[in-house]
Lab assay of single mutants.
Amino acid sequence: NITNLCPFDEVFNATRFASVYAWNRKRISNCVADYSVLYNFAPFFAFKCYGVSPTKLNDLCFTNVYADSFVIRGNEVSQIAPGQTGNIADYNYKLPDDFTGCVIAWNSNKLDSKVGGNYNYLYRLFRKSNLKPFERDISTEIYQAGNKPCNGVAGFNCYFPLRSYGFRPTYGVGHQPYRVVVLSFELLHAPATVCGPKKST
């Protein structure tokens, strides 16, 4: 009989979020998941679920829940969905086509923008091939755009693969920082350890 609540607040209220190319993952297990707390949290810009209804989450049990978190621009949030393409979905964070879970995003301009620009948040701009679902690539190898080998030196046709967002408070909404948490639900042939409040007695 599990009684402790799942530590969703640790994920959602973290002081610093990860850059999207180096997205953070927390495994959540052996706890009671009260999703209504999240669902009623006012400032969400997006709360979209795939393969599961957000209002039914509290009735369900899962083997594991993974909480992935990172920061992207407002106009990139739409790429955090199954079957998407674009710089983020291709080179930074890719969801599987059969994704079961929820994508939760909110504007973090007050936290993550600075006058003069916040350059701490990076994304991958160049990559030889697209990421596989949930693949994480933190390499900083110089990207070779031409035929000539770069030998690890940036220059003509040789690019550092990461780019900084440089968030400023005055940017338009599409270019403002958004914090994103992706909850993915794993249902294995194993005992369920993460259940909603109704199922955990």
Rank of each mutant, 00 (worst) to 15 (best):
I72C: 00
V37W: 06
E10Q: 08
S53G: 08
S139H: 08
K48H: 08
Y123H: 00
T15R: 12
T170S: 07
A105T: 03
T193F: 14
D9N: 07
L188V: 04
P149W: 11
N118E: 06
K148P: 11
K48N: 15
E186D: 14
H189A: 14
S129N: 07
G51K: 01
T201S: 08
F156V: 13
N130C: 08
T100K: 05
K114N: 00
L111M: 10
L111D: 09
K198W: 10
R163K: 01
G166M: 10
N151C: 10
F134S: 05
F41G: 14
S53N: 15
S53C: 07
S53V: 09
F160C: 10
N24R: 08
L5Q: 09
T55D: 03
D97G: 05
Q84M: 04
D90N: 08
D9F: 04
T15A: 06
P169S: 01
R27T: 12
F134A: 15
P197L: 14
P7N: 15
N75M: 11
G116Y: 00
G152M: 11
A46H: 11
Y159F: 05
D97E: 15
K26L: 09
A154V: 12
L60K: 13
R73A: 14
N58G: 05
K26Y: 12
S200K: 14
R163L: 07
D98S: 12
L188T: 11
K128T: 14
S139N: 08
E135T: 06
N30H: 04
I2Q: 01
N151Q: 12
T193A: 09
A18E: 06
V32K: 08
T3P: 06
G166L: 09
S200V: 05
R163E: 14
P7R: 02
Y35G: 11
V115Y: 00
Y39V: 14
F160Y: 15
K114F: 00
A18S: 09
N120L: 02
N147Y: 08
L125A: 13
F41R: 10
V173W: 14
N109H: 14
L111Y: 12
H189S: 02
K198M: 04
V65I: 05
D97M: 08
Y178C: 02
G83A: 00
T100C: 01
L187D: 02
W23Y: 00
A18G: 08
A192Y: 04
L187W: 03
P7H: 06
G117T: 00
S129Q: 09
Y39T: 15
V65C: 07
G116L: 00
G155A: 05
S129F: 12
F45L: 08
P149S: 06
N64Y: 06
T100R: 08
A190D: 12
K199W: 11
Y66T: 03
N4M: 01
L5Y: 04
L122V: 03
R136H: 02
L125T: 06
D9M: 13
N40Q: 09
K148N: 11
Y121F: 03
G196K: 12
T140H: 12
F44G: 12
F47A: 11
N4F: 10
N157D: 15
Y143T: 04
A46R: 15
S29D: 04
F156R: 01
P161N: 05
N58T: 06
I28F: 12
A33C: 03
Y143L: 06
Q84K: 04
D34N: 09
V32T: 07
T201K: 11
H189Y: 12
A33Y: 04
N30E: 12
Y35V: 14
F8W: 02
R16H: 12
N40S: 12
G166F: 04
L60G: 15
G152I: 02
Y66I: 14
V77L: 12
T63H: 01
K110R: 11
F156N: 14
T85I: 11
D97W: 12
N87T: 14
T63G: 02
